[in-house]
Design a protein around this nucleic acid. Structure first.
Lengths: 130, 130
DNA sequence: TATAAGGCTTCCAGTTACGGGAAGGTCAAG
DNA sequence: CTTGACCTTCCCGTAACTGGAAGCCTTATA
């Protein structure tokens, strides 16, 4: 299977696949006689794993660890669980931060008329900080 | 005032100040006889504006627009309000996305024993996607 | 069969918003 | 006069790719 088919079947762009290969996240694909990459079912499987893990917010470095754990059949599930919990913590923190920002912005928007006049509490706030 | 004092008073690092100057976000600071940047009260004011806007999640490009609006005393408040609302929308979207990710991860963690054994629903899910 | 379109390859550059660090000038203190 | 703390500019590195150029390969069509 050529790279564009692999991309289509996994949701990982051809560019991204080459990138993942270049940073050794995934094993280099077999090459056909013409030099084209040739992907097999296992390659597709791995790419889907990567796509799903990335989609769940794991960094590429973390995905690398997860792949190693996935391929190590003697791993302890605690390790994977720990990584997932770490990811959850970071996500929760980010959510809290975004929510507090959103609150501030919403308050500002509420106090701003939003008409043709120049008076704008939003800019006043940015300027004054108070 | 030298750059390190300006940094301290605004919460913007010296590196960031030079960067903002280099990309024309802020006006180049006056130079003292020795070539050092010399910041005045207005510079500090502008840097604080930038710091606060960045802290509220506006991109540097957006801060540039906000600064222009701030300095244009004939601006319409509607424009600033619109930008703030756009920022809020993006933030809300991001929050929703993070929350759905967090939910999925939490479900997975819950189903994972997290012990010394290799059985791990988290990896199973990443692999199978189902 | 010639050729044009499209896919594949590699490599380089750009993205965001800076931080780190090198090489070298400047300033205040002892 | 030297030390150490500033300051300057310049270049590299970050995360995770995307876009584009230059140049093969393949397939379809005239």
């Amino acid at each position: 299977m050529n790279i564009s088919q692999a991309a289509e079947q996994t949701g990982v762009s051809a560019k991204a696949i080459r990138y993942y290969e270049s940073i050794d996240l995934i094993a280099p694909a077999r090459r056909a006689g013409n030099g084209y990459r040739d992907f097999n079912d296992n390659d597709i499987h791995m790419l889907r794993f990567v796509a799903r893990a990335r989609g769940l917010g794991f960094s590429v470095a973390e995905v690398s660890d997860l792949l190693a754990l996935y391929q190590d059949h003697d791993r302890a599930s605690a390790q994977v669980r720990g990584m997932a919990q770490g990811a959850i913590s970071r996500i929760e923190e980010k959510i809290a931060e975004l929510q507090s920002i959103s609150t501030v912005l919403s308050d500002l928007v509420e106090r701003c008329q939003g008409d043709d006049r120049p008076n704008c509490p939003i800019l006043d706030d940015l300027a004054g900080g108070a």
